[in-house]
Each structure stands twice: as structure tokens, then as C-alpha cells.
Design a protein around this nucleic acid. Structure first.
Lengths: 196, 196
DNA sequence: TTCAACGTGAACTGATCTGTTAATCTTTAT
DNA sequence: ATAAAGATTAACAGATCAGTTCACGTTGAA
């Protein structure tokens, strides 16, 4: 329990990746400003000296954490969508089933990128831009599926689905309920049948 | 005792209200953890000693700020909805026109309650609960209007509108664009015509 | 064995955090 | 006028913040 993982001989890319991976849930649960680097060192088992060997500043570490989160989340979400349906339109709807699975997890604490952009609100802030990039990558994927499904208004539809997703996440996090997932899915079904 | 309390409350009321009002934009712009009490004292012109005479902790001040924000925002939003339409259904749609006005303001920085619940995520946290209360008050108002408009599924409809509103706010804040307002309005129009 | 290279954690900056204390200034009521 | 009460400045706690320094332990090569 207490630092059960022993240090390896060298702090290689493995160790660095391990640090990022272990720091992620800390920032996700406690927030960015509220999580100090001493706590990161203590909880990850990596000394502050080593941390600052790999990252110039706390912000650099946060950006690396967010990059990992982006990769993990998109891989997981797109994977679940594919697993739950064979058709493009079915996958778009299955996105909300995947969301519900996420909302039901004990560790669910809202969207890390919404929280990141809430704490780093400056328009030019790299963390803010990075958070929006994540949303754009999601929209791109929805757009591809909508086009593949034959929708002429693929752009509009993908933006609508993203808006439903963000609204569902915010309400699920604030209400501690998984209900917004199926609610958003019903709304998506109406919009997918109305649009052409 | 009763007399003394009454005196203190009366005397302090102006200064206290002024402090809350001036602290609000500070927390809104800079975030809660990132805004120190020294900055609050400096920017509001109220000494730290006086601040801590009125509020036991920083959290108490934040809660007072959020209470003011809740009152101000609901008064403004509901007022704009009434000003823009005479009918209940029209007011529900006009909500998104009001949102667009908000998004276009220079000072727009997203929803203060989403940001508050993002920084104070603990389920039992008073700030978190208070933030959700705000959303419930909005949903209640939407519910009343939907029922007044004759919708049988007023509960479902009011939740859908709230979800659209939250999604639009998040995307408007992250993308620095007002477009999500009209996008959500179009979605609401579809849902209002589909539901009965 | 010996030496050099290197990653490491404890201890340290100096700044800032929330919250307090003490002395001084302003106001107000009698 | 005078005393009580309020509000202010200014300095101060004690903790914690991001980030740095340094002595130590482990390693590998000769």
C-alpha cells in the first residue's frame, strides 16, 4: 500500500510513463491547483528531484498527464463504440451507452478536460488549448462516422452529438447520477432521425 | 443579545454585500484556489481583518459569492426569457437567445457553478451541493414553463433543456465561440416539436 | 579495489497560502 | 467631549506552494 512499487535501476521512459500514469488519478480526483508536487512525489513514489529531471515545471507534467488522458479516453471510447455496434449510426448512439458505463464507475469524477479548462481559463494557456483539442478530436471522429452513415449534415450532427455528450457529463458529475447518459441518447435518437 | 446581533447585521450589511459583489468577478475570472485572500482584500478594498470578521473561512466567502451569483444569474436569465417572449414555449426557446447574449459578453468565462463543482469535487462538499442546487432551480423553472405550455412530459423536457444549456455553455467557454447557443436552440426546437 | 558517473531523497529556498493578533484610526451615540 | 465599537494597517503565525541544492548510495568499468 505504501509505495509498494520499488524503484527500478534507472528512471527510463518506463519510469517516466509510470509517473505520468500514477499522477493522472491524483490530478483527476483532487484538481490541479489543489494537488501539490509534494503529494505527487509521495503518491507516485517518485522523488521531486526525479520529477523535475523529466519535467521543467508542474504545468509540463500536467500537460503530459492530459496527453495520456486524451489517448486513453479516446482509445477506450472509440473501442467501446466499435464493440457495441457494427454500423456507423449505431456506433454514434452506442457512444452514450459507453458514457453510461463510465458514469457508473466509482472513479468517475467528470471530464478531466472540462475541469482543466475551468482551472486554466486564460485563452492562450496551453492547457486550455490542449483541452479543446481533445474535444475537437472527438468531434472529428463523430464527423467521420456521420459522413460514413450517409448524413449530408455530418458537421452539424457531429457538433450536436458533442454538445449532448458534454451536457450529459456535466450533469452526471454534478448530480452523481448516470441518468443523463440515456437521456442524451434519447435526444440523439430524435436528432439522428430528424437530420438527413 | 438579539439587539446586538441585529445591530451588527445592519451595520455590516452594506460593506458585507459590497465585499461579496466585488469578490465575485475575482473568483469567476481567476478560479477559486488560484485566488488568494490577500488578492481579494487588495482588489475589493476590504482589509483581510474585516473579511474574516464577516466570514469564518474562505469557503464561507465563496459560498456567499455563489449564492449571490445564483440570485443574479436566475434573475437575469428568467428576466431575459420573459422579455423575449410572451408564451411559455417561446420563453423556453428564448433561453438560448439569452445564452447567446451572455456568450457574447467580454466577461463570459463559462458557468461559475460548473467551475466551482470542478474545483470542489467531494460529494459532501457544501460548495458542490450548492452548485447542483443552482441547476435544480433552473430545471424547476423550465419544468413550470413546460407544464404551462401543456407538455405532458414536462419533467423529461425540462431535463433535456438543462442538458442542452450545460453542453452549450461548456463548448462556448472552451471554444471561445457563441455558436453553441444557436446550435442548442435548433436542437431544442426539434425536441419541443417531437415531444408532447 | 578504486574511481567516476549518475539517479536519488532529504533538506532547503523564497514565495505564497489561510487565518490571527496588536495597535491605530474613524465613526457614532450619549 | 468622551467612550464604545468598527474598521484598518501591518506584521506575524504555521503550513504549504513550486522548484533547487547537495550529500549519499548504487552502478559499471578498469
Amino acid at each position: 500500500m505504501h509505495n509498494a512499487v520499488k524503484q527500478e535501476a534507472t528512471m527510463s521512459h518506463n519510469k517516466r510513463a509510470e509517473l505520468i500514469q500514477n499522477a493522472l488519478p491524483l490530478f483527476y480526483r483532487n484538481g490541479f491547483h489543489a494537488t501539490g508536487m509534494d503529494l505527487v512525489a509521495k503518491e507516485t513514489g517518485v522523488s521531486k528531484t526525479s520529477i523535475y529531471k523529466h519535467f521543467r515545471t508542474k504545468e509540463d507534467l500536467i500537460r503530459a498527464v492530459l496527453q495520456l488522458r486524451d489517448e486513453n479516453f479516446r482509445t477506450w471510447l472509440f473501442g467501446r463504440m466499435e464493440a457495441l455496434s457494427d454500423t456507423p449510426k449505431g456506433q454514434l448512439l452506442a457512444m452514450f451507452d459507453a458514457l453510461e458505463e463510465w458514469f457508473l464507475e466509482d472513479k468517475f469524477q467528470g471530464c478531466m478536460f472540462i475541469k482543466a479548462s475551468a482551472e486554466f481559463q486564460s485563452k492562450e494557456d496551453a492547457i486550455n488549448l490542449q483541452s479543446f483539442d481533445h474535444k475537437r478530436l472527438l468531434e472529428d471522429h463523430f464527423h467521420n462516422l456521420a459522413a460514413e452513415a450517409g448524413y449530408a449534415q455530418a458537421t452539424q450532427l457531429s457538433r450536436e452529438l458533442l454538445l449532448l455528450k458534454e451536457g450529459a457529463i456535466v450533469l452526471a458529475a454534478m448530480s452523481h447520477s448516470h441518468a443523463p447518459a440515456m437521456q442524451a441518447k434519447r435526444m440523439a435518437e430524435v436528432l439522428l432521425s430528424e437530420t438527413n
